[in-house]
Design a protein around this nucleic acid. Sequence first.
DNA 1: GTTAGCACTCACTTTTAACGAGTGCTAATT
DNA 2: AATTAGCACTCGTTAAAAGTGAGTGCTAAC
Lengths: 344, 344
Amino acid sequence: MLTDRQLLILRAIVDDYIKTAQPVGSRTLSKRDDVTFSSATIRNEMADLEEMGLIEKPHTSAGRIPSELGYRFYVDHLIRPESITPKEAQALKSLFAHSVNENDRLIRHTADLLSDLTHYTTLVLGPKEEGQRLHHLELIPLAEGRVVIVLVTETGHVEHKTLQLNQALSQEAASRLMERLNQTLRGTPLSALRSRLLEEIRRFRSEHSEQTVLLSKALDLVLTDQEERPFIYLGGKANMFDQPEFQDVAKLRPVLELIEQQEAVLDFLRPNLDNQILITIGSENNVDALKDCSVIRAHYSVDGVSIGTLALIGPKRMDYNRGINSIIHLLQAFQTELHKNNLD
Amino acid sequence: MLTDRQLLILRAIVDDYIKTAQPVGSRTLSKRDDVTFSSATIRNEMADLEEMGLIEKPHTSAGRIPSELGYRFYVDHLIRPESITPKEAQALKSLFAHSVNENDRLIRHTADLLSDLTHYTTLVLGPKEEGQRLHHLELIPLAEGRVVIVLVTETGHVEHKTLQLNQALSQEAASRLMERLNQTLRGTPLSALRSRLLEEIRRFRSEHSEQTVLLSKALDLVLTDQEERPFIYLGGKANMFDQPEFQDVAKLRPVLELIEQQEAVLDFLRPNLDNQILITIGSENNVDALKDCSVIRAHYSVDGVSIGTLALIGPKRMDYNRGINSIIHLLQAFQTELHKNNLD
DNA sequence: GTTAGCACTCACTTTTAACGAGTGCTAATT
DNA sequence: AATTAGCACTCGTTAAAAGTGAGTGCTAAC
């Protein structure tokens, strides 16, 4: 177990390094107001901390920097929850002053706010649509057998897709089909939509089998599409450029390349279990491209249904305090807005 | 006027520099097969070319590199149109093997192809929707006075927006309204849609003034939105990382930042007049962030109308030959596909 | 008009030296 | 027994010096 003094020193090292990006030496620390003991004492303590694997030195004659374990300890034990000031809270509220009707826009807005707040890159995963329910289907025939299918969920989310039938669909046939399907299927969770639709098809096969089969394919496509490429938004990509650790293109490149890849982002963000804030540091990300990054992520949910992820990505030396607090408070405001939009 | 030998040397310098990114010296040139004269002669000619402002030296004891004027001359006079080989043409065709129904996807696909082909970054501006005509409007009431409005053009392009009415709109009212408006407005060019809608509103004011006014606002929003943020797609951003001139973050940053900004891209790409391929080199871009870049851009059009832009962005030292040829041929295939989708 | 020859330039690399922030250890101090 | 002052040592960083070589411009010869 660490002594109080060791805790103080460790915290000071991490805080300092987060601020300056420079290895922290014993002399620097000894000058702090909250440090009453000498640099030699600090050196002794540092040696112990290093032995425990909490800090390390880039080279013999440099100061110390936190190791991944050190950051981990800092995050787990040393962060002061530093509640947001009422003034800031007020400011945060006012950021959502005029509410945003569409969830997509709301998400974008939120991501941008978060990256402005923290100066890190924000990554938001849109709501899983599975949990949502169908509100309306619309089939709009174009010329030459091309058809636009539009799907609206109860939260007002819209998906659409154009597809090519091998025979033209008349306006009348389309609306008859839609009317029936809307009657039957409204309120169906998207996750169950496919199988329900199949049921419907079987039931009405005789009447308009051809179109219905095609339609089912179309819907399949819409649903698959949206499942495979859920809404991802990146905010504050440019903030990466400001981090001293990413001044080297070789360091910067893999990170930017990774977050531009939708699939990679999904793979990376999906396995997020509980509702809490989750912090992964460096190699904990299990992604080589992010070995020098830390990620703070939080699930958001509406009415208990957990639906998407809000993530903050920065260097390992990121300001965890600020990051966590920003994400917590923004998440709250965000969920409130989302809730408004989801009232049905 | 330049002599044949000077042309040969200039071309050799540009070609070489494009390939190696290293200043080209007289000795190097004298070793080429197509050069029969000595390095001293080359030095003399180089001095003349430099006097004319076509080449320059980074410093006294380096070889020569093309000046912007030199690139300009090269592009205007020295490029061999180097027709694509039948094999490549075939390959290009097959890239569009299975046609893509939606223009948006087609554009994305094309951009990715182009950047794969050239190893530069591609920037595609979607078609201006103004020229397109309304095919269908759909108004879908959600709970609590929220309404989704969906607009479909004759080419199958879909725009949608959610808005908040101050009183709920019934399903029936919505469909009555829509039926009438669709009858009247189908085929209206989007550019004329707003004023036409106003007309309609005036005519039917007595019947359902409240909703119609709101609807007009909604449509306004949809149209404005789509005008302000037309479809932009970027392909091959990562290719920038490979260019030796952008290994320095300070050089790379402004370029990446610029192309991420939709408005900036628009400002930059919009004033594109004719149908030809337009090449701007370095400062010709009139954008500070692109002072070290060249841009090859081409308009695309279908049946003479509906115009967007396909652009290739790379270092000044880009392979103009390959770029131009790739864009020309891809443009052709692209337009053919687009044409198929636009048959109405 | 062309070319060989040569002195000169200058970025780049390597070497050397000086610097200084920081360390670890030891002995003195509290 | 814990703390601290003192000091030799390490090592990255910076600056200056020296050497290297690709390339140039000029001149004189062909």
